[in-house]
Amino acid sequence: MTLLIDEVTLTYPDGDGRLTALDAVGLHVPAGSLTAVVGPSGSGKSSLLAVAGTLVRPDRGRVFVDGVDAGGLDRTARAALRRERIGIVFQQPNLLPSLTAAEQLEVMAHLTGRMSPSVRRRAQDLLDAVGLAALARRRPRELSGGQRQRVNIARALMNDPAVLLVDEPTSALDRERGAEVIDLLLALTRERRVATVVVTHDTGHAGRADRVGAMRDGRLTAGTA
């Protein structure tokens, strides 16, 4: 259960030319470890997540998710890869307003066509793991920002992913709640043996990761926390 990004280059149209968002980026995230990627706005952090999450195809290089080469997959297969092996924690919780906290998780199982009584139990267990078991029937507008972010994390883990991609998880939270979220991500990464990448501008939180990479102008400099 790993994530391997191999010499990936990604460019976007920019006027008459092209803007290089990722420039020969390489990253290996083993199972059970958390890698933080820090960098200023526009440095390519979100592009790295988009490529790792198979949301966009790189111009060059390859992405392996749990051993599967995402480059050779069509759109349908990439969607299947995302729902089966990739969990995404969005910067903003992006919860569906009509669903309760438990249903935000159950819908993930429904996407895979696996609805059974065990799905509800698993959703309840995950909400319990993020400390929200008592709020399972609440809708997003009835939850605080921190609670919504926890549901966001639990949802990403619902289909037991190999890779967890986390986008600025603390940007909307105060320092204390941000630290709690990082603690939670670290614990879940270890417990569930997930390869986790956290993109953040917050170097304070990043320091607690197993590894830290710095993005600047589309280039990733690897380091160790």
């Binding site: 729902r83 990739i86 992006n94 569906l96 993930m108």
Partner: peptide, 8 residues
């Protein structure tokens, strides 16, 4: 969001 989460 649903597409990003893997909905076809």
């Amino acid at each position: 969001v649903l597409k990003a989460l893997g909905a076809s």
